[in-house]
Amino acid sequence: MSAPAPPAVGKRTLLVEDDAETCRFIAGELEAAGYTVTAVAHGRAGLLQAGTAEFDVLVIDRMLPRLDGLSLVTALRCMGITVPIIFLTALSRVDERVEGLRAGGDDYLIKPFAVAELLARIEAIGRRGPLNPQAALLRVGDLALDRLRWRATRGDRRIDLQPREFRLLEYLMLHAGKTLTRTMLLEAVWDFHFDPRTSLVESHISRLRAKVDRGFDRPLIHTVWGVGYRMSDGR
């Protein structure tokens, strides 16, 4: 987990965050994960940087001096800059999340967050995988999901899925190879924007595992300790 050769394409990050300590911490963690980070402390500097240099992902705080995050993103989108953007914010209100996404943000992360959560989200939106999100047929190894007929098969075995299990599997397969956090699953599969206090995700993953992986040598659903889950044909 070191970053020897910047700037690696696909990992160029612009971080716009006014709190120096938070900024240093996030930048350090991102660099440790192999990203190159350009950090600026206010909105106008962010606008200047994003408008002149190439980035693969922008991480922007909602509350910024000189030009606030929302206006910055609106301005960038007006300039035709389509780089994926993640908002960081201390505001958790529903309408503020909606506002952020409407302004052109791709994802919304509420402070405080685990760095692993930010990394997972950057990975999920930064480099789009080879899978077309509109594809009718999803494949990971010998697991196939027919999204039109609502049917899953592994090898030649048919898998019966509950509606919620189907959506969970679909989301995992769409992001195959990427680590998905519990929060990402809650937002995407259940549309929960709060932390449930029971093992909702774990219960559903364990049921899905029993259907998808039990009886096969190679498991497809992997637990990433302390972070979340990943679907992949590999390790």
């Binding site: 911490f25 201390a90 505001l91 405080p112």
Partner: peptide, 19 residues
């Protein structure tokens, strides 16, 4: 929202340092 901002930021830092 001031409290949200003013208290969450130090909380974030505390958690970051612990991590």
């Amino acid at each position: 929202s001031d409290i949200a901002h003013d208290l969450r930021t130090p909380l974030t830092r505390l958690r970051d340092h612990l991590v």
